[in-house]
């Protein structure tokens, strides 16, 4: 073999080597951004604490941050806040995981079978347009004040964005990549596992990100409609007592749950899509 190894024009041209100064500049920039975010948080908390009082807004409309914090500690002590938070968190995770699995399975099946897509697409469209949270009372009628209706609402609401994203990605798979696999005599299963599945991963994770925030909505609506556990229940309870600080506490914890699930998706996505060329998010 007489292929020489002296190609100055080609070898090594594509590998980017970031210089030390660029890295340092980026680090400075990042730390500035972090400082900016923290500063903004302090500003918001301070505004929340004192601004309503200065503007004459009554505390039962916007309670100051310190009242909400006190209510938070009191609720941990007296209202089993952590127990309710844990229940809601578990339901969100279970509903999210089931919804994602079903959505992905549906997306791949419809993406692979053109006929199934043609037959089912009007119904999927109808279900997608239907407001999923409106099913909560129906599910409570069916399953009573159990965990099931809450999980079902979450599953239903997570299902569609995942399905639509996966379906779109499978349909948009590069036909030339499929032809490449076919030219090596790949069977249908290999085309799926080696081309369609990995090619659809970015869209699948985009669907998961959307689903992770929707799962919280699904569970909360289920809990609002009926039952005596979870943050949704605490929310209606606090509303009944006109306990505005408790409502704020509950909303904050629901947000926290959403953030945790969302970040979990981002972390897994970073691992799975590590081949992709994009800038870090955090």
């Amino acid at each position: 073999m007489s292929v020489s190894s002296s190609d100055l024009t080609d070898t090594g041209a594509g590998v980017s080597t970031s210089g030390g100064w660029a890295e340092r500049l980026w680090a400075t920039f990042t730390s500035l951004k972090v400082a900016g975010s923290l500063g903004l948080a302090v500003l918001i908390l301070a505004g929340w604490e004192w601004l309503p009082g200065l503007l004459g807004i009554p505390v039962f409309i916007i309670p100051p941050a310190s009242d909400v914090w006190a209510e938070f500690l009191w609720m941990i002590d007296r209202s089993a806040l952590l127990y309710h938070t844990f229940i809601t968190f578990m339901l969100v995770v279970v509903g999210f995981v089931i919804g994602c699995l079903l959505g992905a399975a549906g997306g791949y099946l419809l993406g692979i079978s053109r006929n199934a897509e043609i037959v089912l697409s009007p119904y999927i469209l109808a279900l997608q347009i239907a407001p999923k949270v409106a099913f909560a009372p129906l599910f409570v009628l069916w399953f009573g004040y159990t965990f099931t209706p809450k999980i079902l609402v979450a599953v239903l609401i997570v299902f569609f964005p995942v399905l639509i994203n996966v379906l779109g990605a499978v349909r948009a798979v590069d036909q030339q990549q499929v032809d490449l696999a076919r030219s090596f005599k790949a069977n249908r299963l290999q085309i799926f596992s080696k081309i369609e599945l990995p090619a659809s991963m970015p869209a699948f994770f985009a669907g998961l990100r959307i689903g992770s925030t929707l799962a919280v909505i699904g569970v909360v609506v289920g809990e609002l409609v009926g039952g005596n556990t979870g943050l949704g229940y605490l929310l209606t309870f606090a509303q009944g007592q006109a306990n505005t600080p408790a409502v704020f506490v509950t909303i904050s914890l629901l947000t926290l749950i959403g953030i945790i699930v969302y970040l979990a998706v981002v972390v897994v996505e970073g691992r799975v899509l590590r081949y992709m060329n994009r800038r870090p998010e955090f």
Partner: peptide, 30 residues
Amino acid sequence: PNSHVAFMLQKDLLLPWRTIRENVEFGQEI
């Protein structure tokens, strides 16, 4: 498709989720 022939196009068709080595191994893996 048969193993007597192999094609190469203007697009390199390297699969972005595979390393260069894994891309080279792709046909044999199948």
